[in-house]
Structure formats: structure tokens, C-alpha cells
Nucleic acid binder design. Structure first.
Lengths: 161, 161
DNA sequence: CGGTCTATATATAAATA
DNA sequence: TTATTTATATATAGACC
């Protein structure tokens, strides 16, 4: 009965984990369907349980969406078809200083970029991390419901693009 | 304020439709992330707004999940990675992975780099942060303090692994 | 587009069949 | 694994910035 808040972290008990996987996967599919219905959007959800079982959902179909993904460059909020004019500047100017810091650290001349972050010193990684945290709090602290209680690992995980 | 139940059908007003698309898409990404975190699952969500803008999310990465899907419905879980037995290799692999994420997120094609992190969304920032933390821990050191002027630092931590 | 706020609609954890 | 129940945790519509 959800009498308490469930921590967002790995579930150790297998039985619970599978139950949760099934329920949440179904919920995910359902929400995806609603999104597509209400917004005339196309979407696909591909899932693989820890056990390796695969479950897919797609509208109009998994295949069409995946193909569409494969077709174009996958840059989030960037696949600008320009149909609606300029609409992505996302975070935009709300970040400033921290952003500069990141650019400064990661930038190090785009030339160095090719070597990844290997060349960054530890303290620089700290700075980078802090800068990102700062941006996050500005960009939308609420999205991360764990901010206040930065203790245990309730955090989530982000996926990649 | 959701004073009444919203009908699950196509939204006619464009402005409302886009707002809904954005909110629900973010919610979908968030739930996907939670699912992956709690159930050690892999998943990807591919979305295309009516306008044609694309937004993707995936764990461990959109690409890996899509590839797994493409590999075939019977693709056995290749969940167990890095059973190298050699710690160095494992660590190296981990770093590479995190590094790869950073490249994916920040790189987005060096072209996008010029726009800094402006185009990154909260979820992506979370991931970027996680990747950095991962590298830090691997590199072998603990965070020190934040950037000099730690003013409003409420940061939240995302444990990547 | 993203963030904020708030009243409600939904999702869902745990127990049980 | 799926279905049901039900107390709560979350998501989110609509207004506005």
C-alpha cells in the first residue's frame, strides 16, 4: 500500500524486483501510449529486464520509430525540423557562470576534447562536478526530488541520450 | 490544477499539446530511469513530437539498447559485462564508459559544443554528473570542496554505480 | 521550452489469491 | 507471473513567468 516512500535504488530482493519491473514497465507503456495519443507523437520504449527478457512498445510501431531513430542523427532537442520555428534553447541563458566554468574545463581547447576527460586533473573534475550541480539546481532542482535529502542513494540514473 | 479528469485523446490546441508533450516526455524519461535503477534493467525511450523534434533517453545508453533490440528479439541478456578478472581492465572499462557518456552528452557532435551545455536537459545533466562522479571515484580520490564560492549549493547526487 | 504552484488524477508497493 | 485491493507517493493540467 505504499505506506512509505520507496527508495529509488536497486531492489535487492529478486521477487520484489521482478514485480516492480513488470508493473513499472506496464505503466511506462501506458504512459507512452497516452503521450502519443494526446500529442500525436511517435514513440517507442524498449526494455530488457535483468533476466534478459525483452519487452517493447511502439506507436505507430516499434519498428517504425526505431527506424526513424536510426535514420537521423540522434541529437535530443536538436533534431530540429524547424517546423515550429526556433524552439530549443532549453536551458538557455539561465546558466552563465557555471556554464563558463564547464566550457573552460571541458573545453580546454576543443583539441583536447578528443582525449576525453582523461586529461583533467582531479581537482578539475571536482570543479566540473560542482559546476554541473550548480546548473542543475538552477535548471530545475525540483526535478530531482532527492535534493533536500542528499543522503542515501535515492537518486536516479540518467540515461544517455 | 487538474480539476477534472483529462480526456485521453488528441489535444487540439497546439500550445497545450506541446506543453503536454514536454511534461509527459520528461515524466516518461524519469520513470524509465527509475525503472532501470530499481530493477537493473536496460531501457530506451525514443520520442518524436508532432513537429518532428526528437528526444531520446536510454540506460545505459540509447544506442546500446537500440542495438540490443536490433540484435534480435531473442537476444540473450548480455548483462554480465566486465567479468574480466583483471581489475585494471575493469576500471579502465568503467572509465571509458563514463567517458563515453560525457562525450555523448557534451559532444553531441563538436558542433554543438559551441553552445555549451545549453542544450542539455536536466536528465542529461544528471547523467553527466554521474559520469563525472564515476570517473572521480575510479581515478581514486574523493571530492573535496566545491568551487570556491559555494553559495547556493543544494546539489543532489546521482550514484551511477 | 523550462520553471513554479496546487488541486487532483494516476501510478504503484505490499499483501494476498 | 498476473490480478485485486487500497493507502500513499507521484505525476501533471492549467495559469503564469
Amino acid at each position: 500500500m505504499v505506506r512509505r516512500r520507496v527508495e529509488i535504488k536497486k531492489i535487492e530482493e529478486k521477487s520484489r524486483m521482478y514485480t516492480t519491473f513488470t508493473k513499472r514497465r506496464q505503466g511506462l507503456f501506458k504512459k507512452t501510449k497516452v503521450l502519443c495519443t494526446m500529442c500525436e507523437a511517435e514513440a517507442a520504449v524498449l526494455t530488457f529486464s535483468k533476466a534478459g527478457n525483452a519487452f517493447f512498445f511502439g506507436h505507430p510501431s516499434v519498428e517504425s520509430v526505431v527506424n526513424r531513430y536510426a535514420a537521423g542523427p540522434s541529437s535530443p532537442a536538436s533534431t530540429n525540423t524547424g517546423i515550429e520555428g526556433n524552439e530549443h534553447e532549453v536551458v538557455a541563458a539561465s546558466i552563465s557562470e557555471a556554464e563558463k566554468k564547464i566550457v573552460e574545463l571541458m573545453g580546454k581547447g576543443r583539441a583536447a576534447w578528443d582525449n576525453g576527460v582523461r586529461n583533467l586533473e582531479l581537482f578539475e573534475l571536482d570543479e566540473l562536478e560542482s559546476a554541473i550541480q550548480k546548473i542543475k539546481s538552477k535548471v530545475g532542482a525540483q526535478a530531482a526530488e532527492t535534493i533536500s535529502n542528499g543522503e542515501d542513494q535515492k537518486a536516479e540514473f540518467c540515461g544517455t541520450d
